[in-house]
């Protein structure tokens, strides 16, 4: 359980969640963190189970998502890390935070750039997942077109500044960076009222 001070601190830090919302997210956190290993911490398999409904299998983005949540890099997602990361996905979170988070997500090799090779790898992953077949020529054409638009200095990779400008021209690319659920999280997890420390 969490004390009122911890809750208030997390809510304050998030700039998006109230104390009751942090408590509701704690209900969700408890559920996920006890799904495989009952230690109150989210392990990678538990994140995978929550996202894909199966604890095994491969997904290109699972490692990146886990890594971005796991700020302390100790192999588990602690509750404060869970709140920090989810606050980026709040409908009211600053667009700048969403843009930066998405950049770090797509920078698979963490070189500080989104490289053509990485984009190719990510597109192939989604084509395989959705069982859509595209010819190599069409795939190259999609990549060419994307880089023509995004890579304004033509060095073959997308830097943070180019990414920001690109995303602002194509705001639909940030759609998956907003979770509408977070707007009404206390309704989704009403059981927080049994453990609440405060009435908002």
């Amino acid at each position: 359980s969490l004390g009122l001070r911890d809750l208030a601190h997390l809510a304050d830090e998030s700039r998006c969640f109230s104390v009751n919302e942090v408590e509701a997210l704690f209900e969700l956190y408890k559920k996920i963190s006890c799904s495989i290993i009952d230690d109150g911490l989210i392990h990678k398999e538990e994140l995978q189970l929550a996202l894909f409904k199966t604890p095994s299998g491969q997904n290109l983005f699972l490692d990146r998502v886990f890594d971005l949540f796991d700020e302390k890099k100790n192999g588990v997602i602690e509750f404060d890390e869970f709140i920090h990361a989810l606050s980026v996905f709040h409908p009211l979170a600053p667009v700048e935070d969403k843009i930066n988070f998405a950049f770090r997500l797509y920078d698979l090799r963490q070189t500080g750039f989104i490289e053509r090779e990485e984009v190719m790898q990510m597109v192939i992953a989604i084509l395989m997942e959705s069982r859509v077949k595209l010819s190599d020529d069409l795939l190259e054409a999609i990549l060419d077109k994307t880089f023509e638009d995004a890579d304004t200095d033509r060095d073959g990779k997308i830097c943070q500044e180019e990414w920001k400008e690109f995303v602002l021209r194509h705001p639909n690319l940030l759609k998956n960076m907003t979770l509408p659920y977070l707007r009404d999280i206390t309704t989704a997890f009403p059981s927080f009222v049994f453990n609440t420390a405060v009435e908002d």
């Binding site: 969700l28 996202l51 983005f61 998502v65 997942e129 995004a150």
Partner: peptide, 25 residues
């Protein structure tokens, strides 16, 4: 239509990037 989308529009459809699923546990 995949062919008419830019690469990142396609990428953002990946299930691993759909954190909505977290709330359906």
């Amino acid at each position: 239509q995949p062919a008419s989308m830019n690469a990142f529009e396609l990428i953002s459809l990946n299930r691993g990037l759909n954190l909505d699923n977290l709330f359906e546990t």
